[in-house]
Design a protein around this nucleic acid. Structure first.
Lengths: 347, 347
DNA sequence: GTGAAAGCGCTAACAG
DNA sequence: CTGTTAGCGCTTTCAC
């Protein structure tokens, strides 16, 4: 019940400087962990900061010579389970670095998208930008950002012909590993539901991994067993219905993300196919979805939280400047759920 | 292939003023839609702004007398399907208002939480703060924020004894409506899995709605048919197993959110109960989860996106100042999925 | 209607 | 090691 009407008298760096008997520069140095401050002075300043409850204004810090303490996270039409852990990782890294995260959901495409992003960048002047799929594989966007000289990290499976910093994991070998696991269980007719449409300019790593393993096992994939669901549950239903209601349907289906695998479970139910008895279903990402559907999905664990964390970390460490091409590769893991089963040993 | 090494010469309000032959004040007025600018002048300024590709620096705008153009969205240990649409709604409203959204995931509890939030508020000086569950029902936090004189909106079902602005929908009557629908289908033994634990200081509106409808129908609810899953899939499994494996299990179970309903589907499968034949399952929220599990859940559609949108809107309209108690009530809707079925007419 | 000038709170040379 | 002094880019009185 403290004076409820107290005007929120903002306390500034001047107040701290005066109270501590030092100049504002010194306070600023302490704030920025400048090692060139005598420990004794530092402690004294720190003490008054605490005593006064002082908190530096982030906007003022960004003006003048100061570097902005903002990280921008950009996404577009996101698969929620993909973007949220990344965001969380980014927030976690920001917190420990006295930075804040500004999240933007882009709306446009083509030149309008570029303008939209430049608008954000120019207004915010962030320390760096984290680009997630599908923004992270747009060469024009990357190029525009490079011209603006902004640090950026792409969270993206596939490299582009440019040196932008990137965090990723080897989706191609993960896709192959998953496919091999199905083959080892006795599956021969394996369907694949891609996320990226056939003619997409970017290489589809997941699908390539699938193709690698099938080829290596000498298995053919009829065209009818390949389709695309654009990574979204709703859009996956129709192609799945088509694929699974053919005369000779696959005994296993590999979906390029968990959302589409959830759709496969639904379609299987519609067609009275028991999973995994009649049909094995595997996903990709080990997102929240994979854990809560019944049966729990066999999938590839993608370290999304770490990816967000690492992306921001690269920015903070200066490994994401326009002239740098740092890359960080993270490990993946095959997670065995209950959506897959071996095939009875026959032909 | 424009001069790739061009230093990103920032263009400022001075550049615009000079090019347009006006003072910086006028440019500022145009930027802020001050009606006191002659239309002709405005157009001319707007034209040069476009021509120069000028974008005001948000940090500089926040200093001095300027009002911050930031909205802070705070959450803690979120149910991802609850928080993401709210965030999206908030972003959408911000975009149209020349504001930006800063997202924060709080870590602490008790006094540390309050310090954490005050830290954010003092550093960012946002135009307003959006508090989501469970932060939005913490009286101490609300009180601390009020002392700081910050605008805030609570996204919260239950009112507190304070006049903080709030956006919500009537969870109690929604819970009752859902329960009545089950009763109308012939169910008599209906279980309830709450999100909030029994002794929680905040009223549990969903559970109350359930109780209302059961009472009104003259139905008893044995203690064994009431439990709590804390809104999270993982935590819901154990209580569901207990409840559903009793001798006389409920024929329908009402889960306080969709994530827990997904858990009910899983437990039902474990126990060889077919849904909805042997057990009807209903959720709450109509989140993404409800739409992608099999069978699709019967649930209550909560307008989460709108809630985020409205929350920011209230801040922008000045309806969320510490002395105001505006409330906005949004409609809900019962969504019929495939997880419920009527009971054969017997006793 | 419009402009000149004074900040906003902080960081960054540049001295000492 | 520390303080003085300019700004940073914008908004806002207060005049005209």
């Amino acid at each position: 019940m403290k004076s409820p009407a107290t005007p929120p008298k903002k306390i500034t760096i001047y107040d701290v400087a005066r109270a501590a008997g030092v100049g504002t520069t010194t306070v600023s140095r302490v704030l920025n962990n400048d090692p060139a401050v005598k420990p004794q002075t530092r402690d004294s300043v720190l003490a008054t900061i605490t005593a006064l409850g002082y908190r530096p204004n982030i906007a003022a810090r960004s003006t003048g010579g100061g570097k902005s303490r903002w990280i921008a996270l950009l996404y577009q039409n996101p698969v929620i389970h993909y973007i949220h852990p990344i965001q969380q990782g980014a927030i976690d890294r920001c917190r420990d670095a006295d930075h804040m995260l500004s999240v933007h959901s882009c709306q446009n495409t083509g030149q309008a998208l570029i303008d939209e992003v430049l608008d954000i960048v120019d207004q915010l002047q962030p320390s760096g930008v984290v680009l997630t799929l599908p923004l992270s594989i747009s060469p024009k966007l990357i190029q525009a950002l490079r011209e603006r000289q902004v640090s950026l990290v792409r969270v993206a499976p596939a490299g582009l012909n440019d040196p932008a910093a990137r965090v990723y994991f080897d989706e191609r070998s993960a896709g192959a590993a998953m496919t091999r696991a199905l083959i080892a269980q006795g599956h021969r007719r394996i369907g694949f539901l891609a996320g990226l449409p056939e003619g997409h300019p970017q290489p589809d790593e997941r699908r390539q991994g699938f193709a690698d393993a099938m080829l290596e096992a000498g298995l053919k994939v009829p065209a009818a067993h390949m389709s695309c669901g654009s990574f979204h549950f709703d859009e996956a239903l129709a192609p799945l219905r088509t694929m699974l209601s053919r005369k000779q349907p696959p005994t296993a289906i590999f979906c390029a993300n968990d959302d589409m695998a959830a759709a496969a479970l639904q379609v299987a139910a519609e067609l009275n196919l028991a999973v995994p008895r009649d049909l094995s279903v595997v996903g990709f990402d080990d997102s929240y979805i994979a854990r809560i559907v019944t049966p729990r999905l066999t999938t590839i664990r993608q370290p999304l939280h770490e990816m967000g964390w690492e992306a921001v970390d690269m920015i903070l460490r200066g490994q994401a400047t326009p002239d740098m091409g740092y890359q960080r590769v993270l490990p993946y893991q095959l997670v065995e759920g209950r959506s897959t089963a071996g095939l009875p040993a026959e032909g």
